[in-house]
């Protein structure tokens, strides 16, 4: 099959709806297994960290949330670019579906980071380079969501958000690098260790499980939300009406 015909097939909401329907149960089962399994493993079976004690167990939820939130923004910007360049409607739906999921995951990683900070650093919030970067990522998500809500015209909203997401994605490396640089100027002496240096290999295995689980969970949610977008936008087409009301009407 040629590239362009694959592209057209993927761009068809109907084909995507049917294909994703077959994928959904597998994603749900696998992601929940990995997330729950990894969490139980990390909570109860991994030995405590010799420096941080037991608080490091928050890592198994904090790190996956932050990683997936970051990846989700890049996916959103890519979908936006595809929508702008090839005018693929499905990409606009994917983009709209990602924003609330990504924002929730970013919020989650900020919150778990704060709760992790209290027992380890003795304070809820530290203006650490990585935390600050995640906070800015959260702001970028909120900007996209706010812009989308402000438009009444759905197509214009999608295009405007695509432009903003791309501008944001281009700026993210610059922002992260600036924040790193800013932090290196003001590094407080009280934070003497970083996450990775004390991590024992045996502690990483549950992290791999929850990380994969979170990616799959994100994929599952993304499909769920995109399918709802498809139903809402294609509500006047024959295939959607047949699908919802049965073909025998």
């Amino acid at each position: 099959m040629s590239i362009s015909s694959t592209f057209h097939k993927w761009g068809s909401p109907r084909w995507f709806y049917q294909f994703s329907g077959r994928l959904l149960p597998w994603l749900a089962i696998l992601s929940l297994l990995l997330l729950v399994g990894g969490a139980v493993w990390g909570l109860a079976f991994v030995p405590a960290d010799y420096k941080q004690g037991n608080s490091f167990r928050i890592m198994y939820i904090h790190v996956p949330a932050a990683a997936v939130a970051m990846g989700a923004y890049m996916t959103m910007a890519t979908a936006g670019a595809i929508h702008l360049i090839w005018r693929m409607k499905l990409a606009a739906m994917v983009m709209k579906a990602i924003a609330p999921i990504g924002a929730s995951l970013t919020f989650l990683s900020l919150l778990t980071g704060a709760v992790w900070g209290k027992p380890t650093w003795g304070t809820w919030w530290v203006w650490d380079a990585r935390i600050t970067s995640v906070l800015i990522l959260f702001f970028l998500y909120l900007g996209v969501i706010a812009l989308h809500q402000a438009f009444e015209n759905r197509d214009a909203a999608a295009k405007a958000c695509a432009v903003l997401a791309i501008v944001g994605a281009v700026n993210i490396p610059i922002i992260y690098w600036s924040v790193e640089w800013w932090y290196s100027l003001h590094q407080p002496a009280s934070i003497s260790f970083t996450g990775e240096s004390t991590i024992h290999p045996s502690m990483l295995r549950p992290l791999m499980a929850t990380l994969c689980g979170m990616y799959l969970f994100f994929g599952w949610l993304l499909l769920l939300y995109t399918r709802i977008e498809i139903l809402e936008r294609e509500k006047n087409t024959r295939w959607v009406q047949d699908l919802i009301c049965g073909e025998s009407r």
Binding site: I136, F139, L140, L142, G143, V144, A146, L147, A150, L164, V167, G168, N171, I174, I175, W177, S178, V179, W181, W182
Partner: peptide
Amino acid sequence: KGGLLLSLIVLPLYIPVLIF
């Protein structure tokens, strides 16, 4: 109602300039 929205979408992008 562009005004407040504009600041929401633009402020995060201003950060590197402010830092330097």
